[in-house]
């Protein structure tokens, strides 16, 4: 007599296979959760052409190119170029530099290992952007320890100059 098929086991196996497939191939389809620049650069072939969610600080400046713009988003490890529409870019108020903390954006878009539209750049073409944190101007505080050191050294420098003048005489 043939053994009766164990329906419960079938269902269990199917579920295991399904979970396995999802875990294995999910990154190939899209990455709905945030992904780091390290992961993108190190696994560029894997994510090529897929939708990704990436977040980081806008650094440098927004470079407008006709109806589009380039912004570079730094997540703390690397900065990645984001190609986005002019209308999306207009939401950016602060860009990171010595005197400012840039806006922290979350962008959803298509990742390219070597973008054919942009001469092989590793970039993301943004579809949606979300401002997670607004940037701000950074107030620079004068470092008084450095200032005091400047004056001490100035005294030493004056002494050295006097010594040199004496020598010349």
């Amino acid at each position: 007599m043939k053994p009766k098929p164990d329906l419960l086991n079938y269902a269990y196996c199917r579920m295991v296979i399904l979970v396995f497939l999802i875990v294995t191939f999910m990154p190939l389809v899209s990455c709905a959760q945030g992904i780091t620049s390290e992961e993108l650069i190190n696994n560029a072939v894997l994510y090529d052409g897929k939708q990704v969610v990436y977040e980081g600080e806008v650094i440098g400046e927004v470079m407008y190119r006709r109806d589009y713009a380039w912004v570079n988003l730094n997540d703390g490890s690397n900065a990645i170029g984001i190609w986005l529409g002019k209308d999306l870019a207009s939401a950016i108020a602060y860009t990171g530099n010595y005197k400012a903390q840039g806006d922290w954006l979350e962008i959803t878009g298509i990742f390219h290992r070597a973008c054919s539209q942009h001469g092989g750049d590793l970039d993301i073409h943004a579809r949606v952007i979300r401002k997670m944190n607004s940037g701000r101007q950074v107030k620079e505080r004068l470092n008084t320890a450095k200032l005091n050191f400047v004056f001490v050294l100035l005294g030493v420098l004056c002494l050295a100059l006097i010594l040199r003048l004496l020598k010349n005489k």
Binding site: E140, L142, N143, K146, V150, L153, V156, A160
Partner: peptide, 18 residues
Amino acid sequence: KELNPILDFVIGCEISCV
């Protein structure tokens, strides 16, 4: 108008000149 960087270079310049 970068205050602390100015101090950094004044210090570097002073040490080098001394």
